[in-house]
Write a protein that binds this DNA or RNA. Structure first.
Length: 366
DNA sequence: TCGCCCTCCTC
DNA sequence: CCATGTGAGGGCGA
């Protein structure tokens, strides 16, 4: 039986949440911004609604430039409030959980789902299910979303992308090959500027051309894993399953310094709250770490890291702080210019269970 | 396996 | 023109 995989994406999520909260925004260009705090306008646009996009504003654009483009257009410039969007996202994911066979959230505003079993592989049933999902989200949160349906994750993702905004795109299994033929490789998930440039130099610009390439050539150019992935992506035959309940493998926090510096203590001080946040994430998820990484983004935006691993998992925030500081001392000695941004990452995560909750054995739960 | 780097993803 | 923040995954040398 053909798989029925879906990908759902909430339209211009942060900005749309703001529009729902304040409906008068709907008639205006809206940008939701991350302010770095260096100067009044330093930072970037995280999300722009379609009115702002029409004026040439997009994600990742510096706020100052976006403001220039939006000057005199009655635009709303809104500071991002992550917790608010997390809450909305959480409610939507719960709703989705109830309506699909398997749900795999892949970000705050998107998820893969599998409805093969509940539809029996029938794509007309799948379309009804997808429409019902879109309707449920709209009725509950007044948010529009876009959905793609197809036989694999890559196809479903391509579909949701094409369906935006507020659309549904179905690629039935039999049409997959014809559908892919003329799709530019840059549209395929996992193919960014570097990969597409290399492919282009090999004379490959569409998925159809990629499908016709020699797997051996791809593997030589991109490595074994990624080469195989490219073949699967181009032919729509990726078998990667939708998986529920994936655990995070790392937590990190990166901040922009108030001024460029190479002083480890100055960097560490400003990162201090970030370290607490990372530790809080560990507590919330019940995890311990084995590796700490200090991250430095230098004045020229190049990235340098230093990391240290422990033999056994650690969950002590004091250790995290001490190691981070000492890594920044090392890092600072090894760089040729100042830090612009600094961060900390914990990885090698494992569940803190039996050891620390030995009391469970002494006093069994009910 | 570790440490470091690169690429990509999303907004 | 100024350039945020989070996470996944893989390659490679030691």
């Amino acid at each position: 039986m053909a798989r029925v995989v879906g990908h759902i994406d909430l339209d211009y999520f942060y900005a749309q949440v703001e529009e729902v909260e304040e409906p008068s925004l709907k008639s205006r260009p809206v940008i939701v911004c991350v302010f770095s705090g260096r100067t009044d306008d330093s930072g970037v646009v995280s999300t722009a609604n379609y009115k702002a996009r029409e004026l040439g504003v997009h994600s990742g654009m510096p706020i100052a430039l976006a403001k220039k483009k939006l000057g005199g257009k009655d635009a709303a410039v809104i500071k991002m409030e992550h917790e608010k969007y997390e809450a909305v996202s959480g409610r939507i994911m719960e709703e989705l959980e109830d309506r699909v066979d398997v749900l795999e959230p892949t970000g705050i505003d998107e998820a893969f789902f599998d409805i093969t079993a509940s539809t029996g592989g029938d794509y007309s049933k799948a379309v009804e299910a997808a429409e019902s999902i879109k309707r449920a989200i709209f009725e509950r949160e007044r948010l529009t979303s876009s959905v793609g349906l197809g036989r694999s994750k890559i196809i479903a993702k391509l579909g949701s992308d094409m369906a935006k905004p507020d659309g549904l795109k179905v690629i039935v299994p039999e049409e997959t090959e014809a559908f892919l033929a003329s799709i530019p490789v840059t549209k395929l998930y996992g193919i960014g500027p570097k990969t597409s440039a290399t492919l282009s130099s090999m004379g490959i610009r569409t998925a159809g051309e990629l499908a016709g390439a020699q797997p051996a050539d791809l593997e030589r150019a991109f490595g074994r894993k990624f080469g195989a992935y490219l073949v699967a992506a181009a032919t729509g035959t990726d078998a990667d399953p939708v998986v529920a309940g994936l655990e995070p493998t790392q937590f990190s926090r990166i901040i922009t310094l108030r001024r460029d510096t190479r002083e480890p203590l100055e960097a560490f001080d400003q990162l201090s709250k970030g370290i607490e946040r990372v530790h809080q994430k560990l507590i919330d998820s019940g995890k311990a770490f084995r590796t700490v990484t200090a991250i430095g983004i230098l004045a020229d935006l190049s990235i340098k890291t230093k990391s240290r691993s422990f033999e056994a998992p650690v969950d002590d925030v004091a250790v995290l702080r001490d190691v981070t500081l000492s890594l920044f001392e090392d890092l600072s000695r090894s760089v040729a210019r100042d830090f612009r941004r600094v961060g900390v990452r914990v990885s090698g995560l494992s569940a803190v269970d039996s050891q620390s909750s030995l009391t469970q054995f002494l006093r069994p739960a009910r």
